[in-house]
Simulated assay, not measured.
Amino acid sequence: MHDLVEEMAHYIVRGAHPNHPEKHSRIWKREDIAYLCDMGVDAPPMETEALVFNRSIFDVVGLSDVVANMKKLRWIRFDNYLTSSFPSNFQPRELGYLELKESLQKELWHGYKSLPNLKILDLTNSSKLITTPDFDGLPCLERLILDGCKSLEEIHPSIGYHKRLVYVDMSKCSGLKSFPPIIQMQMLETLILSKCHELQEFPDIQSNMSTKFENS
């Protein structure tokens, strides 16, 4: 029954414009993603709000440029994302959820980027990730998951001033040596630093809050 319901939902999404995936609100099918990548920079403005991609299906060239052209994106899920950093024009201001599990990026993007509605950033097991983005550009971020980012060396110091973060998981970040001072993280409830074996000292806390810490 679940498969049937899912198939009906897919049909409804594609039904109005079966040959124009740029007009679909949700994109997940191999042929649709490949079609958009073939269009490249010539692709028209897209109506896409949710994009799901798994590299195990196929490898594509130009996917990051396609994503940059999706101004209405609210949800992105990429597994095993191979490409380099997102381009400078990647700035979906409606984006609320970004999941890049097992990504091979060393950094998400260069410099500062404004994603004012992003609430969840999940980079679980992104083993090549070296540094985090500037959190000043993510003012609504509530959950940050970096579990298993074993190459992570640097956490942008702006995290210590983030007023909306509630949950931060940095367990098994085995290369991490320090966590920036916690200055204004009044909303923080959970900070997980377990199995960060290179962490030289516990974060300096200069803010009043009721927080659950995990460190082992």
Rank of each mutant, 00 (worst) to 15 (best):
E7T: 09
A9M: 09
Y11S: 13
H17C: 04
P18N: 09
N19S: 11
H20R: 06
P21M: 05
E22S: 10
H24E: 01
H24G: 01
I27E: 02
I27L: 06
R30T: 02
R30C: 02
E31H: 10
C37H: 06
D38I: 09
D38L: 13
G40Q: 12
V41W: 10
P45H: 04
M46I: 15
A50Q: 15
A50T: 10
V52A: 09
S56H: 07
D65N: 14
N69Q: 15
K71V: 09
K71Q: 13
L73G: 03
L73H: 01
I76Q: 00
I76P: 00
R77I: 13
F78R: 01
Y81T: 01
Y81V: 05
S84A: 10
S85V: 00
Q91I: 10
E94K: 14
L95T: 01
G96A: 15
Y97C: 07
L98A: 03
E99K: 11
E99M: 11
L100I: 03
K101C: 06
K101T: 10
E102R: 14
Q105M: 15
K106H: 11
E107A: 01
E107K: 15
L108G: 08
Y112I: 06
S114Y: 11
L118M: 09
L118W: 08
L118C: 05
K119Y: 03
I120L: 14
D122Y: 14
S126E: 07
L129M: 12
L129T: 13
I130H: 05
T132V: 01
D136H: 14
L138A: 06
P139C: 04
I145G: 06
L146A: 06
D147K: 14
H156G: 01
H156T: 01
H156I: 03
P157Y: 00
G160H: 12
G160M: 13
Y161G: 04
H162Y: 12
H162F: 10
R164T: 00
R164M: 06
L165V: 12
L165R: 09
V166P: 03
M170G: 08
M170R: 00
M170Q: 00
S171I: 00
S171F: 01
S174V: 11
G175I: 03
S178F: 04
S178L: 02
S178Q: 00
F179H: 00
P180E: 07
I182V: 15
Q184P: 00
M187V: 04
L188Y: 10
E189A: 02
T190G: 00
T190W: 09
I192F: 02
K195E: 14
C196D: 02
F202D: 13
F202G: 08
P203V: 04
P203M: 08
Q206I: 08
S207K: 05
S207I: 07
M209G: 04
S210M: 13
T211W: 02
F213A: 07
F213L: 15
E214Q: 13
S216K: 01
